[in-house]
Simulated scan of single mutants.
Amino acid sequence: MGHHLAQLNIGRTLAPVDSDLLIGFTTMLDVVNDRAERSDGFVWRLQDDGIGNATSLRWPDDDTINVNMSTWTAVEALHAFVYGDREHRAVMRRRREWFEKLAIFQCLWWVPEGHRPTLMEAQQRLTALEADGPTPYAFTFTTAFPAPDGPATDVRSFPDACPA
Score class of each variant (00 low, 15 high):
26 T>K: 05
157 S>W: 09
91 V>I: 14
56 S>L: 10
98 W>D: 07
116 R>A: 04
9 N>M: 07
10 I>K: 06
100 E>W: 05
96 R>I: 12
27 T>V: 13
70 S>E: 02
110 W>K: 01
92 M>R: 14
31 V>H: 13
80 A>N: 07
73 T>D: 07
135 T>I: 05
67 V>P: 02
66 N>Y: 12
26 T>P: 03
59 W>C: 01
136 P>E: 06
1 M>H: 15
110 W>V: 00
163 P>M: 14
65 I>C: 06
154 D>A: 15
31 V>K: 13
106 Q>S: 12
7 Q>E: 10
126 L>A: 01
153 T>G: 09
89 R>Y: 06
97 E>N: 15
37 E>T: 09
104 I>D: 11
66 N>L: 14
60 P>V: 00
161 A>E: 14
116 R>W: 04
88 H>N: 11
154 D>Y: 12
156 R>I: 05
130 E>D: 08
113 E>N: 07
114 G>K: 08
84 G>L: 03
25 F>W: 09
47 Q>M: 07
53 N>S: 12
114 G>V: 05
123 Q>C: 04
4 H>R: 03
48 D>R: 08
52 G>M: 04
112 P>M: 02
98 W>C: 08
4 H>T: 03
23 I>P: 09
87 E>V: 04
118 T>P: 00
144 A>D: 12
133 G>S: 11
6 A>W: 00
54 A>I: 01
2 G>Y: 13
59 W>R: 00
25 F>H: 10
32 V>L: 06
61 D>N: 09
113 E>Q: 10
85 D>T: 10
76 E>N: 03
34 D>N: 15
113 E>M: 06
93 R>G: 09
106 Q>M: 13
11 G>H: 08
46 L>F: 01
121 E>L: 03
120 M>W: 11
153 T>E: 10
149 D>A: 11
60 P>N: 03
31 V>T: 15
49 D>N: 12
37 E>L: 05
55 T>K: 08
147 A>V: 02
128 A>C: 09
97 E>C: 12
30 D>T: 14
134 P>I: 07
9 N>F: 09
89 R>I: 10
129 L>T: 00
43 V>L: 01
44 W>S: 00
57 L>I: 15
76 E>Y: 02
146 P>L: 08
118 T>R: 00
164 A>D: 15
61 D>H: 09
50 G>R: 15
49 D>I: 10
163 P>Q: 13
86 R>N: 08
50 G>Y: 08
69 M>Y: 04
18 D>Y: 08
47 Q>F: 04
155 V>F: 05
127 T>G: 04
3 H>D: 06
105 F>W: 15
155 V>L: 07
41 G>D: 00
46 L>K: 02
160 D>C: 13
22 L>F: 08
147 A>T: 02
135 T>A: 04
94 R>V: 12
30 D>V: 14
49 D>P: 08
47 Q>R: 13
122 A>M: 04
17 V>C: 11
158 F>K: 07
119 L>K: 00
107 C>L: 00
56 S>E: 13
87 E>M: 03
33 N>K: 02
118 T>M: 00
106 Q>R: 14
64 T>R: 05
48 D>K: 04
136 P>V: 07
108 L>M: 03
20 D>H: 15
